[in-house]
């Protein structure tokens, strides 16, 4: 569900940066109030775990599609929504910078779509409400799946909205959404099952490590030390990265599959009004006016002229740069 920079315009990107930054600021305040020095280490290990897990695309039987883990719900189940949100933010930043998975400008959108819904909608509104009356295996499994489905549905819907408001695609909103939501329902189910498996493991090993919004009612079992559980989580991350990556699907992910499916249909009709609105927003937010290309011969001439200019300027600049590099090297060696 990682959005590339090309899918958002600066206005949408900026708005989502502000929204995500506000949530991050609030989360930092909450984490500081908890005052648990050990938590930062747990967040680091859990972040690495989610990173590893997100390298894998899970194939969804019967659809030819696949999706990767959005670990915000998993992080919330262990660290709580605030620390979980910050950890996911860190993971998304590293993915964006080192692996070009999601754009730098679209980072605010990705944090919102992949971290905020899982941690706050899935974590605070679903997980916390169910778990505050006591934790059981069945509750963990059912809640994890439900929360993951809800958060992915909201995330997928947000991707559709952000793309629409950016005026990037000509896909009609209804068609795009109708293709995005069902596939992410299946992905959410898969993600929920994986999340449940990990959370059940933690519950068996160290139940007090699970975040429930209040103090756990069940008696802590001294099976493993805190540090060992952290190490186990780290190891699970390594297992996920190393072992399961071998079976990572080569299929496109849910977003790609949805677009492919929609683009393949020729019976769809564009809805104009919402695109006009998006276009007006784009015009107003664009830094400078642009050059339109009317449907006449002079427009083609202008385009050719521009293209020729492009080749000349690029060639001159490249030559100057190489000359600069040549003389700098000569200076260094001499």
């Amino acid at each position: 569900m990682h959005m590339a920079d090309a899918l958002v315009n600066p206005a949408v990107a900026g708005t989502m940066y502000v929204c995500s930054a506000a949530l991050a600021g609030y989360s930092i305040k909450k984490v500081k109030m908890e005052d648990e020095p050990k938590k930062i280490a747990a967040m680091g290990v859990m972040g690495a775990f989610v990173f590893a897990a997100q390298m894998i695309n899970f194939t969804i039987p019967g659809t030819g599609s696949s999706g990767h883990l959005c670990g915000s719900m998993l992080l919330t189940g262990i660290l709580g929504p605030y620390a979980g949100f910050l950890t996911m933010t860190g993971v998304l930043l590293i993915q964006c910078l080192l692996f070009a998975d999601g754009g730098l400008l679209a980072l605010g959108c990705n944090i919102w779509n992949m971290a905020a819904y899982g941690c706050f909608a899935g974590g605070l509104l679903i997980w916390k409400q169910v778990m505050k009356k006591g934790v059981t295996r069945k509750k963990i499994i059912s809640t994890s799946i439900a929360a993951c489905i809800v958060s992915l549905q909201l995330g997928a819907f947000s991707v559709t909205l952000q793309t629409l408001f950016s005026g990037i695609t000509e896909l009609p909103f209804g068609v795009f959404a109708a293709a995005m939501q069902p596939i992410h329902l299946a992905i959410g189910l898969v993600e929920g099952m994986i999340t449940a498996a990990v959370l059940v493991f933690v519950y068996e090993a160290r139940p007090e490590m699970l975040w429930t919004g209040n103090i756990m009612e069940c008696a802590p079992k001294e099976r493993m030390s805190f540090r060992k559980v952290l190490a186990v989580l780290a190891a699970v991350a390594a297992v996920t990265a190393g072992g399961l990556s071998l079976f990572a699907s080569q299929y496109p992910d849910g977003l790609e599959w949805s677009v492919e499916r929609v683009a393949g249909s020729t019976e769809l009709e564009a809805e104009g009004s919402i695109y006009k609105t998006a276009g007006q927003v784009q015009d107003k937010t664009a830094l400078l006016p642009d050059y339109a290309l009317p449907d006449d011969d002079s427009a083609a001439g202008t385009a050719v002229s521009g293209l020729a200019g492009c080749v000349i300027v690029v060639a001159v600049c490249t030559a100057v740069c190489y000359a600069f590099r040549f003389f700098r090297r000569k200076e260094q060696h001499g």
């Binding site: 680091g44 290990v45 972040g47 860190g90 993971v91």
Partner: peptide, 15 residues
């Protein structure tokens, strides 16, 4: 904030 930056560095090292 420092907590976020430290977190990024920790994730990177563990990864």
């Amino acid at each position: 904030p420092g907590i976020l930056v430290t977190l990024v560095l920790l994730i990177y090292r563990y990864l």
